[in-house]
Design a protein around this nucleic acid. Sequence first.
DNA 1: GGGTTCATGTAATGGGTTACATGATTCC
DNA 2: GGAATCATGTAACCCATTACATGAACCC
Lengths: 190, 190
Amino acid sequence: MSARSISFRQFVLGMLAQQPMSGYDIKRRLKNLAWLIGDMSFGSLYPALHALLNDGLVTVSVTASRDKPPRKVYSVSEAGKTALEEWANQSELSNTSLKGFVMRLNMASTLSQPALVRQLKQRREQVSAHHTTIQQQLDALDNETDLGRHLVMSYGLTLASAELAWLDEALARLAQPPLAVEGRTNHRVS
Amino acid sequence: MSARSISFRQFVLGMLAQQPMSGYDIKRRLKNLAWLIGDMSFGSLYPALHALLNDGLVTVSVTASRDKPPRKVYSVSEAGKTALEEWANQSELSNTSLKGFVMRLNMASTLSQPALVRQLKQRREQVSAHHTTIQQQLDALDNETDLGRHLVMSYGLTLASAELAWLDEALARLAQPPLAVEGRTNHRVS
DNA sequence: GGGTTCATGTAATGGGTTACATGATTCC
DNA sequence: GGAATCATGTAACCCATTACATGAACCC
């Protein structure tokens, strides 16, 4: 209920909005994202799924097959879609961590395009601010400064720069839309 | 006790190894890192400090001054140093998230230089593997793929590239050390 | 006088991890 | 026959967040 604590369930809901899946499927996807946002265990995933079901935000359909164990495939319900959009469209995205941003990015499709652009711009401002802050702090360090602190700052600066570049490119791609539909031809970012 | 649960306390210990500080000071530093690794509250920080004190890994000295509230400055004890080095030098750093890596990076100074190089190389391999995996998955996506998924992958690829570049540079700087002291002249990454 | 920063703490609540439990299938 | 993957779940424990509590100095 308390806006913050929901976020994990909301994230799972966002996953299901991308595509109906089983808990095990979600876990697999999560594993791929683990290096960015950290892993999560079945012990929290399954209960989260049950909670979503309990709240009527998702529906289940058990798929039994004779050679594989039965799977419970979850789909987002109408109520779930409403809840998701409501949450995703909160224009004021608070100063989130990288993890929080990835979680939000992951549900981009539940946003209208202008809303998405707005959020990316907000993120850009935040990261830009971090970038200048780190740069200043880095310049202010004397050479007796702890190596770890130094490395973390340098690392942070690099990531901030990269993220800014990515945001700029993403925004540019969204700015002049070739009216979509056929526009997403080449998403190579490298 | 269970290796994993300690990690937060270990991180705080690492902070104190950089420089003796009060809980409030640590919090301030943490706030600057929040966009990378997420924030942490006083409600967990102070108890962590008490636990470290209880285990004899840190010592306190209360600094009272008449115009400021009294501060409790914590320093790492000998036992604390031992524990830190032991933990930091575990050569096999498991497949950690970005957050975990930053936390480790932050205690680089408790490592011998060869150990640091070893860890950076390990990280490089892991990130490199992620990079190729993401690239493959990205290439395999059809154009009906969910926008959010697409963006997250593209974002991940960008960050992975940036991190690889940073690691290469850091390793290069560590490889032929101009015997430090004056070597760290220009850390501009932008 | 009121808001902000400095400074340290405690208690309740919620929730995530760990470990346990089960069972079928596939590959070596 | 044993390990690994697929597949779902429960329960206890730990711990982190949240909210509460206190208090002094500084600035507007």
